[in-house]
Amino acid sequence: MMEESSVAGTTGRAGQGEGADALILLGCPQVPVQTSAALYLAHALSRAGIRPRIAGTPAARKLVEVADPERHYAADLADLDGCIGEMAEGRGGYRYCFAFIHNDSGVAYAATVAAISQAHIVAVLFGEHAEALAGEIEFPCERIVAPAPHNPLPLKRRIDEVLTWVASNQ
């Protein structure tokens, strides 16, 4: 109980997205590489001078909070649907959105962000259906595809390639 309270107490501690440059949109945390890759991405974006905000479901956020208790990498955490609502109502603009996708819902969320914001979308596709889901995407975006569900290194390498491009546009 104490552990739960401690975790819940860190939710929404910082930011509320004000001033964030990039949105990291987490999907269902069912596939293990997501949390690791998201924290790595947040770290890399911060080092490039791009302030990240991570949005996810309560379970996805708790995984991030436990992995980064001092919030070194995830300083700004937000509720996924609340974040979508803000953008739909014209608040919370971002330059970039990195949408983590491993199921049909992930494609739907990324398409929604593409429709309601001006952000440059990077679809981060992972898990066993990554290739097939990449084929489902009809909106303009960069695509990172790495099917491995447990090994984060292929995804990390593809993220590094895109970050080189992102940093060059800073």
């Binding site: 649907d81 979508i84 609502g85 953008m87 739909a88 819902s105 494609v107 739907a108 969320y109 398409a111 929604t112 429709a115 309601i116 009809e138 909106f139």
Partner: peptide, 16 residues
């Protein structure tokens, strides 16, 4: 409707 269209307290998610 456009993605993000609000019904009650829900913003609709989906591909147009």
């Amino acid at each position: 409707v456009a993605p993000g269209y609000r019904i009650a307290d829900i913003h609709l998610i989906g591909v147009p």
